[in-house]
């Protein structure tokens, strides 16, 4: 394992000389997909709880489709499927976008985590204590103010433990990026495996790195929970 580390520590951590690889790439994928997924999920979660079926049905369909199929299938569909459509192929901005493995990966990851996050946030919004809403209405808040000041902050706090779980699952899901030729940790260790034929050391090293990142994320989220959910502790 030491000689693999000696040979591959640089691409494994941040760069292979001309592009970002390894740990840096994995974290970049995680931050981008979770960031886009979060921005997507927040308005969709509000719509998911709307009264009109015209509003909640499309959101329900989106989360159903993306939560009911494997992420790998979604990635294949976006990476190999869409580029194969002649309509996309012949439209320059689209063909430029879908030709890059990284773009397709981030798009599919963001859509996937967006679907799960929408359901998490929608569940939290639904379970807002009705007293909080009544109090807000009694203060004469408009619907927008009510959402902005009362419902969303309280729902996000309560969703934090479940959301942290989703982020860790997303970290695990980023390993699929290597199938779209994105040089993340698994791609680098896979290259090391092709060079050394030593699966246990190579993939064991990858497992160790992912384990450390998982623990780091768990630590950060524990701190965040202690901060944001302090009012729930005795």
């Amino acid at each position: 394992m030491i000689d693999i580390l000696q040979g591959y520590w640089q691409p494994l951590l941040y760069s292979d000389g001309y592009r970002m690889t390894g740990l840096a790439m994995t974290l970049w994928l995680l931050v981008l997909s979770c960031g886009i997924g979060f921005c997507l999920a927040l308005p969709l979660a509000v719509l998911r709880n709307a009264r009109s079926p015209l509003l909640w049905f499309p959101v329900w369909l989106y989360t159903f489709l993306f939560r009911g199929t494997p992420l790998y299938v979604q990635l294949l569909l976006i990476y190999t499927g869409i580029y194969g459509l002649s309509f996309i192929h012949n439209t320059p901005p689209f063909s430029e976008f879908f030709r890059q493995g990284l773009n397709c990966t981030i798009l599919s990851f963001a859509l996937n985590t967006g679907a799960y996050t929408t359901e998490i946030f929608a569940g939290a919004i639904k379970e807002t204590a009705h007293g909080e809403v009544d109090a807000g209405l009694a203060m004469g808040m408009s619907r927008v103010t009510l959402y902005r000041r009362i419902i969303i902050p309280s729902a996000l706090r309560r969703a934090l433990p479940v959301y942290s779980n989703e982020v860790i699952l997303m970290l695990h899901a980023t390993t699929l990026a290597f199938t779209a030729t994105v040089p993340d940790i698994l791609k680098v260790t896979n290259d090391a495996y092709s060079a050394t034929y030593d699966p246990f050391d190579c993939f064991g090293l990858a497992a160790l790195i992912y384990l450390c990142v998982s623990f780091g994320l768990i630590f950060v989220f524990r701190r965040a929970e202690r901060h944001f959910l302090a009012y729930l502790h005795p």
């Binding site: 390993t175 495996y193 699966p199 246990f200 990858a206 992912y210 623990f215």
Partner: peptide, 21 residues
């Protein structure tokens, strides 16, 4: 702790190739 901290794809490759050896 270990299994839930490591991505399933990494474990799959690790076990599949190592088990054979």
């Amino acid at each position: 702790t270990i299994i839930r901290g490591v991505p399933d794809l990494v474990l799959m490759l690790l076990i599949f190739y190592s088990l054979q050896i």
